[in-house]
Simulated assay, not measured.
Amino acid sequence: MIEFHLAGEFIPLIQLLKATNLVQTGGEAQIVVSDGQVKCNGEVELRKRMKVKKGDIIEFDRKKIIVK
């Protein structure tokens, strides 16, 4: 489990995937989101620019990111 401490109000989903080193590039992040490989709070998330906020739980590649 990865804890990500949010500095502002939100972070776009693809930036969060890059910031936590679960993907190498923004292009890779867009592909995994478009392919339905990412979940937000238990639901498949297809919006690349989805605003991830404190309290959200993101799942990808058998890893969970808790946003605090």
Rank of each mutant, 00 (worst) to 15 (best):
N21C: 09
L16K: 08
L6I: 04
F60Q: 02
T20D: 07
L13E: 02
L16Q: 12
P12W: 04
V44S: 06
M50N: 04
G8Y: 04
I66R: 11
K39H: 02
V23W: 01
D61C: 07
K39I: 00
L16I: 10
K18I: 14
E43Q: 14
D61M: 07
T25H: 06
K39P: 00
A7G: 06
E43L: 11
R62C: 05
Q24S: 15
L17M: 12
N21G: 12
K48S: 10
L16T: 06
K51R: 15
V23H: 03
I65T: 06
K39A: 01
E59M: 05
L46V: 05
G26Q: 12
R49M: 07
Q37Y: 06
P12C: 10
E59T: 14
I14R: 07
I14F: 13
Q30T: 12
I11A: 10
L6T: 05
I2Q: 08
V23M: 04
E43Y: 05
K18D: 11
I57R: 02
I11H: 10
L13K: 00
R47G: 00
A19S: 15
G36H: 09
G36V: 02
I2Y: 08
K68N: 13
I58A: 07
C40Q: 02
V67M: 08
V38R: 00
K68A: 08
T20H: 05
K18H: 11
G26R: 09
L16C: 11
A7P: 00
K48H: 07
E45C: 12
N21W: 03
G42K: 08
I11P: 04
K64L: 11
Q15R: 13
V67S: 08
A29C: 09
E28F: 12
L17N: 09
G26I: 13
Q37G: 00
V67G: 10
E9W: 03
Q37N: 08
K53Y: 03
F4L: 09
L6G: 09
M50E: 06
S34Q: 14
A7C: 04
G8A: 13
V44H: 04
V33Q: 09
V67Q: 11
A19H: 12
K54W: 00
D56Q: 03
G26D: 11
L13Y: 02
I65H: 07
Q37A: 11
R47Q: 05
I14T: 01
Q30A: 15
K68Y: 06
D35P: 00
Q15F: 14
G42T: 08
G42M: 08
F4S: 08
L13T: 03
G42P: 05
V38A: 05
N41I: 03
N41C: 07
Q24L: 15
K18Q: 14
